[in-house]
Design a protein around this nucleic acid. Sequence first.
DNA 1: ATGAAATATCTGCTTTAAAAGATATTTTGA
DNA 2: TCAAAATATCTTTTAAAGCAGATATTTCAT
Lengths: 79, 79
Amino acid sequence: MAIRNRKDLGAAVRRARRAKKLSQTDLARMASVRQPLISALENGTTSVTIDTLLKVLAPLALDLDLSPRRSASFDPTEY
Amino acid sequence: MAIRNRKDLGAAVRRARRAKKLSQTDLARMASVRQPLISALENGTTSVTIDTLLKVLAPLALDLDLSPRRSASFDPTEY
DNA sequence: ATGAAATATCTGCTTTAAAAGATATTTTGA
DNA sequence: TCAAAATATCTTTTAAAGCAGATATTTCAT
């Protein structure tokens, strides 16, 4: 599913984490970050850096990808 | 293609930008960021935040996606 | 070759991500 | 129900992201 904002990202991470039956604390340890960060990431309350995101995705066995947008092209008012 | 580090990300953004025949300055304007940031992003010299990345991807008509890793599962020494 | 456009690289500054550490709150299963 | 585990939310501090502005350097077409 396409990720277009922090909430989408947080939801995707949470789904993946739960699918793997990991607690936030487990994931935090595996990713070498802190549990409150996982919480903030999943809730979309922080704009994680790409480095941090990749650290978190690795133990979830997820890759980041870029894909051409399906419909809905650029709208400046979105930002 | 799977993105596993900043360099990958930078390369992907650069390819997409060139495919759209945009200069860094053009893209920066469309994304409401500064040209030096596009440069740093493309060269992997900064760890952009997810908010900034999404701002840049929008005018390129790219979506962010998470996909299950093909092979190469989690290796802690990668970090 | 050379001039313009494009890209890279500075400084100084402000903002914010993330760490550490602690604790409060919510969720869940026995 | 109620205790333990999980998750959310604080404070303080440090490091780095990103802006603004300027300029240096590289790339490219004429």
